[in-house]
Design a protein around this nucleic acid. Structure first.
Lengths: 108, 108
DNA sequence: TTGCTATATTTGAATATTCAAATATAATAA
DNA sequence: TTATTATATTTGAATATTCAAATATAGCAA
C-alpha cells in the first residue's frame, strides 16, 4: 500500500514541512517578490533562501521569472492559500485537543 | 519570520510527509481499524506501524481506544479528508505542470 | 573587456528521520 | 502462576535533510 501516489503525496507534504518554506509562501500571498525582497521579509540569508526556493520550484509551488538581473517569484496556484488556511483550521483544532489534555492533567 | 507558528505548521506538514502515514490515514477513511487490521491493509510490519501511529497520535491526527487487548485507531477530525482531497487537487495541477514542461521539452 | 549586483549551485559537516531488530508492556486465558 | 496475543518502545545503524560557506553564473554597465 506504499503506492507511488502516496510517495508523491508525501513529497508534496514534505516540501511544505519547513518553517522557511512556509514563510516564503506566506510572503508571496500578496503578490510576486524578488529574492532580495524575500531576504528582507524572511530574514533568511541568500543561500538558504535560494536552496529552499529551489525546492519550492521543483514541486511547482512557485514559478520564477527574470527581469533583467532580478528574479521574481510567485505562487503557481493561488488555491494553495485556501489549502494552507484549511490546514490552519485543522491544526488549530488539533492544538486545542493538546491543550484540553494538558488542562485535564493539571486538574488531576 | 521563522515564527513558532511556522515551526508548528511545519511539524504538522512533516507528519503528513511520509507514505505509510498517508496510507494509514487513507485506510482509516471508512472508520476505525485495529493495529492488526492496519497491518493487513498497509502491508507494513508491526513495529513500523506502531512507530508511525505514534507520530500520528502525537500530532493528534488519530486517537486510540483500547478494547480488551486490541487497540482501535480512528482519525480525530474527519475534516482531514476534505483537506487531503484538496491537497490532491493541488498537486494534481502541479503534476500537470511538470507534464506540460516535459511535453514542451520533447517537442523542442 | 572588467567589475558589479542578483541569484544559483556545490560541498561537507551537523542534525534529523527512518528502518529493522530486539525488548518491553498490558490484558487475558489457561 | 505461566503462556499467549496485541501493541508499544528502545536501540543503533542507514539514509535523508538542513545549514553555512564557498564558488559559479547571468545580466548589465562602465
Amino acid at each position: 500500500m506504499d503506492s507511488p501516489l502516496h510517495r508523491y503525496k508525501a513529497e508534496f507534504f514534505k516540501t511544505l514541512g519547513h518553517p522557511l518554506r512556509l514563510a516564503i509562501l506566506d510572503a508571496l500571498r500578496s503578490g510576486p517578490l524578488s529574492v532580495t525582497e524575500l531576504q528582507a521579509v524572511t530574514k533568511a540569508d541568500q543561500s538558504m533562501l535560494s536552496q529552499h526556493l529551489s525546492r519550492l520550484r521543483n514541486m511547482n509551488f512557485v514559478t520564477a521569472r527574470r527581469e533583467a538581473t532580478t528574479i521574481f517569484y510567485q505562487v503557481h496556484d493561488q488555491e494553495i492559500y485556501q489549502f494552507l488556511d484549511l490546514a490552519r483550521q485543522i491544526y488549530g483544532r488539533q492544538l486545542k485537543r493538546s491543550e484540553d489534555i494538558l488542562t485535564e492533567l493539571n486538574q488531576a
